[in-house]
């Protein structure tokens, strides 16, 4: 079924080196890129962790940051959102563990 036999003559050879064109990757605009849901969720949880002082929220933000980083395709466009999420998550953890205790709770 293959269009090219094992010991075919030059006349039957489907290859045409003269028509060969090098690969040009298609230009993809940032709008066409798929939405980075993990990065977005990480930012949301990170902000929640900082504002409401929830440890779990900051940890979840860190996990979603890891997911976003692992699925990153275009560093130029994706890195900003991930770095923002990472900063908020780390900020939340710092304020939760090293900051003063939240009123109404005992510092463990």
């Amino acid at each position: 079924m293959s269009s090219h036999g094992g010991n075919s003559s030059a006349a039957n050879d489907p290859r045409q080196p003269s028509t060969a064109k090098p690969y040009v990757p298609p230009a993809v605009s940032p709008q066409e890129l798929p939405i980075d849901y993990a990065g977005f969720i990480a930012v949301i949880f990170g902000i929640a962790g900082v504002l409401f002082r929830y440890k779990l929220s900051s940890w979840v933000a860190i996990i979603f940051c890891a997911q976003s980083l692992s699925n990153m395709k275009n560093i130029e466009t994706d890195l900003k959102q991930v770095s923002m999420a990472m900063m908020f998550a780390i900020m939340g953890l710092v304020s939760n563990y090293f900051g003063p205790a939240r009123p109404g709770t005992q510092r463990g």
Binding site: R15, P17, A20, P22, Y23
Partner: peptide, 13 residues
């Protein structure tokens, strides 16, 4: 199969 059918293989030139 692709080496027998195409003269340029791969993304580089």
């Amino acid at each position: 199969i692709f080496d027998k059918n195409f003269s340029l293989l791969g993304t580089g030139d």
